[in-house]
C-alpha cells in the first residue's frame, strides 16, 4: 500500500519535473534575438516539411468530412423541412469545432509524430550532442524553427480544412441533394459571424498549434535515445497531443461560446 502511494508520488514528481523541463526547453529555444539571415531558410524548410506536406491529408479529410456533414445534416434537417439550414449547420460545425480540432488531431498524427521521431533520431545518432560541441545551440538551431513552423502552419491548415469542408457540404447538399443554391449560402451568411465564429476558430487553432508542436518537440528532445525510446516517444506524442487538444477544446469552447 505504501509502495503504491510512493509510486503515485513518483509519477506526480516526474510529471512536474517533465513539465518544468518542457517549459525550460521552450523558453531557451524562443527567448533571445534570432539571426534573421540564418533563421529564415530554416523556417522555410520546416514550413515546407510541416505545413506544405500536410496539405494533402488536410484537403482530403476536409472534403470528406464536409460531404458527410452535408449528407447527415440533410437527412436530419429534411424531416423538419429545414434543409435550408444545411449551410449554417455545415459551416458552423466546421468553423467552430471540426476545423480546428480535426486539423490538430491530423497534425499531431502527421507532423507531430514525424517531428518527435526526427528529433529523437537526431539525439540517438548524437547529432544534437554534436551541435552542442560545435558551439551551436540545438534549441535555437533545431527546436526553434520547427516550433514556429508548426505554430504558423496549423492555423493555415485549419482554415483550408474549413473552406474545403464547406465546399464538400455544398457539393453534397446543393449539387447532389438539391438544396437551393442561393438559400444555402445566404442562410449561412446570415448565421455565420466573422468575429464570433471565424476569429474564435483561428484562436482555437493557434492554441492547438502551440500545444501540439510543443508536445511533439519536447517528447523528441527528452526521449530515451534508443529505438524503443523513440517509438515510445512517438506514440506518446500522438496520444498526449490528441488528449490535450480535446481537453483544451472543451475549455476554449466553454470560454468562447459557454
Amino acid at each position: 500500500m505504501l509502495d503504491k502511494i510512493a509510486g503515485l508520488g513518483r509519477v506526480i514528481l516526474d510529471s512536474i519535473a517533465g513539465a518544468g523541463a518542457a517549459l525550460l526547453m521552450l523558453l531557451r529555444a524562443l527567448i533571445g534575438k534570432p539571426n534573421i539571415r540564418k533563421a529564415w531558410p530554416l523556417l522555410m524548410q520546416q514550413m515546407y516539411a510541416v505545413g506544405v506536406l500536410s496539405l494533402i491529408i488536410i484537403v482530403v479529410s476536409g472534403l470528406f468530412i464536409g460531404m458527410v456533414l452535408g449528407l447527415q445534416g440533410y437527412n436530419i434537417l429534411v424531416d423538419f423541412g429545414a434543409e435550408q439550414s444545411l449551410g449554417p449547420m455545415v459551416a458552423l460545425s466546421l468553423l467552430r469545432e471540426l476545423g480546428p480540432v480535426v486539423t490538430a488531431l491530423l497534425f499531431a498524427g502527421r507532423a507531430g509524430s514525424s517531428l518527435t521521431a526526427e528529433i529523437g533520431l537526431m539525439k540517438a545518432t548524437e547529432q544534437l550532442s554534436s551541435l552542442e560541441m560545435m558551439g551551436v545551440d540545438p534549441l535555437r538551431r533545431v527546436i526553434a524553427p520547427r516550433f514556429w513552423a508548426g505554430f504558423y502552419s496549423m492555423p493555415i491548415l485549419a482554415l483550408v480544412f474549413s473552406a474545403v469542408g464547406i465546399f464538400g457540404g455544398y457539393l453534397v447538399g446543393v449539387r447532389w441533394l438539391g438544396v437551393d443554391d442561393g438559400a444555402f449560402w445566404s442562410v449561412m451568411q446570415a448565421s455565420v459571424d466573422w468575429g464570433q465564429d471565424i476569429v474564435n476558430g483561428i484562436i482555437k487553432s493557434l492554441v492547438f498549434a502551440f500545444v501540439v508542436t510543443w508536445i511533439a518537440l519536447h517528447k523528441g528532445y527528452s526521449c530515451t535515445p534508443t529505438s524503443v525510446g523513440i517509438s515510445r516517444a512517438t506514440t506518446s506524442t500522438v496520444v498526449t497531443a490528441s488528449l490535450a487538444v480535446l481537453g483544451l477544446d472543451f475549455v476554449l469552447t466553454a470560454l468562447m461560446f459557454g
Partner: peptide, 21 residues
C-alpha cells in the same frame, strides 16, 4: 511555402466573404 501561405489567405477570404456576413 509561399503558395501554401497564399492558399491559406484564399481560404480565409473564402470563409470571410462567402460564408460569413
Amino acid at each position: 511555402v509561399g503558395l501554401f501561405v497564399i492558399i491559406g489567405i484564399l481560404a480565409l477570404l473564402f470563409l470571410g466573404l462567402r460564408a460569413a456576413n
